[in-house]
Design a binder for these strands. Structure first.
Length: 475
RNA sequence: GGCGGCGUAGCCAAGUGGCUAAGGCGGAGGUCUGCAAAACCUCUAUUCAUCGGUUCGAUUCCGAUCGCCGCCUCCA
């Protein structure tokens, strides 16, 4: 079965067919860089990292764009996030933005998330956004009032297609005061007039101001990917109003479909409640990395589906970390066997096994990137591999197993980081282990145990069998 | 009030209109071992929130109820 993607727009799984054969145009909403990235960002960008990696595994060329929002947007109290952050930390807004942009990339690197091909910044694309607003005014879909420009919902009856909402059903103004400038409560800002104290502002045909909340994604995605994207990703909480507004303003301007497949991932929870910056109950990635490795966090997130919420609890991560250790141990055993295996043809049985697991892995990944199920097969695969490594295999057979295991687990899922130590240490450990073998042959258990304990303290675990001893790194 | 999602073993978590309801953690037993660890083997949900309905048959489809969550406001 070919790749199926759950499309939020149609609310069903659909076969994935890109607009241009062999090329995927993909855009994902990036972070607002006014604070450290949290575990919710981890789930988001790991989810879409899997999408990109798997599409590339399938042979597509993927052009992946993810914005950096460095224009301040308004908080409930009318204050600007970035401005507020800058005041809090007594820094220039752009300095603040730079610090958190770097923190964001550092965190993603630690989680083994591959960087987007293009990371456009909103402040670097003000002219594009202004141009878009102008075109919307020209086409009669937007109006200017007192230095601000709003999108006119009444000119866009399709508003609501993505979220399935009717404008009249919404409780407009229940929690946020409706601007009196708007003709209709659901009209949204494309450009906002800046108050004198507003630091981040730019010249525009409507005076000094700054872009609206939704316009940057439309302007930048279309600039780099064209008028129709294959995939647009983001969090479910952005489905409305953010993505709904993107569709309205983009399609009103171009007259063509904006996005073919909308993908939305679910939220990270803490004790059953959504984690978010506004609720203040978030764990930063940097903080989580003090307790867990990037691979452990990544693996934990991939053990539930991207469209399911995940509860970030110590118990759950500890449990999944144990599981990850098994997969990493299997990889280590394969690498070791590869160094020690004798020459020879690969066995037909091994080729059958690798083909079987390739089919299973692809079946699950083709089903809307079902990483938990794919990982389930990986555990079975690891067991099959381990039992075969107990007997001697030819180097060609081991290589076949190693290559396929690493291809799925690491190239696509990215969950098998290199072990900590540099490679030369391996040779010394090999030497110590073989020396210990001699000591054991002399039944000098005291010295043998001493070596085992010392090596254990250094992070190397010994495993003794009748004919040989082997070892593995602990973490 | 409107829109949407979820409720599967002690915990985490896939899945399916009917053959054994994946996998991981934890637990129990075993093989191996000088001991240990790892690995491997066996066991660990007669049952999928509750109650109805459709069906020859439902955990899976439909309805109701209960519970939990998200969105309707910036948020990954």
């Amino acid at each position: 079965m070919p790749l199926q993607i759950y499309n939020s727009l149609t609310r069903q799984k659909e076969e994935f067919v890109p607009l241009t054969e062999g090329l995927v145009r993909m855009y994902v909403c990036g972070p607002t860089v006014y604070d450290y990235p949290h575990i919710g960002h981890a789930k988001s960008y790991i989810s879409f990292d899997i999408v990109v990696r798997y599409l590339r595994y399938l042979g597509y060329r993927v052009k992946y764009v993810q914005n950096i929002t460095d224009v301040g947007h308004l908080l409930d109290d009318g204050e600007d996030r970035i401005l507020k952050g800058a005041q809090r930390e007594k820094r220039d807004p752009m300095e603040l933005v730079e610090i958190y942009t770097r923190a964001y990339f550092d965190a993603m690197d630690a989680l083994n998330v591959r960087r987007p091909d293009i990371s456009p910044r909103a402040t670097g694309h003000i002219p594009e956004q202004i141009e878009m607003v102008q075109r919307l005014i020209e086409k009669g879909h937007a109006y200017e009032v007192n230095g601000s420009v709003y999108f006119d919902i009444s000119t866009w009856p399709q508003y609501g297609v993505l979220s399935g909402r009717k404008v009249e059903d919404q409780r407009a103004g229940e929690r946020l005061e409706i601007s009196e400038e708007k003709r209709h409560p659901a009209d949204f800002a494309l450009w906002k007039k800046a108050d004198p104290e507003h630091i981040m502002r730019w010249n525009s045909p409507w005076g000094r101001g700054y872009p609206g909340w939704h316009i940057e994604c439309s302007a930048m995605s279309m600039k780099y990917l064209g008028e129709t994207l294959d995939i647009h990703g983001g969090g479910m909480e952005n489905q409305f109003p953010h993505h709904e507004c993107e569709i309205a303003q983009s399609e009103a301007m171009t007259g063509t479909p904006f996005v073919r497949y909308w993908m939305h991932h679910n939220m990270v929870m803490v004790d059953g409640v959504k984690m978010s910056k506004s609720l203040g109950n978030f764990t930063s990635v940097q903080r989580a990395l003090e307790s867990y490795s990037g691979a452990q966090i990544r693996f934990f997130i991939l053990q539930s589906h991207y469209r399911s919420p995940v509860d970030f609890s110590k118990e759950a991560i500890d449990a999944s970390a144990q599981g990850l250790e098994r997969l990493m141990a299997a990889r280590d055993q394969l690498e070791r066997a590869l160094r020690q295996a004798s020459d020879g043809e690969s066995a037909a049985e091994i080729a059958t096994l690798t083909a079987e697991y390739k089919a299973l892995f692809e079946k699950e990944m083709n089903d809307d990137f079902n990483t938990p199920a794919a990982i389930g097969h990986l555990f079975n695969y690891a067991r099959e591999i381990n039992s075969r490594l107990n007997s001697s295999l030819s180097a060609a057979s081991v290589k076949l197993l190693r290559d396929s295991f690493v291809l799925f687990a690491d190239d696509v899922l990215g969950i098998l980081p290199e072990r900590a130590a540099g490679l030369p240490a391996d040779d010394f450990i090999d030497l110590l282990v073989s020396l210990r073998r001699e000591i054991r042959a002399q039944k000098n258990w005291a010295l043998s145990d001493y070596l085992r304990v010392r090596l254990d303290e250094l992070g190397v675990v010994i495993k003794d069998d009748k004919e040989k001893s082997s070892w593995a790194y602990k973490n």
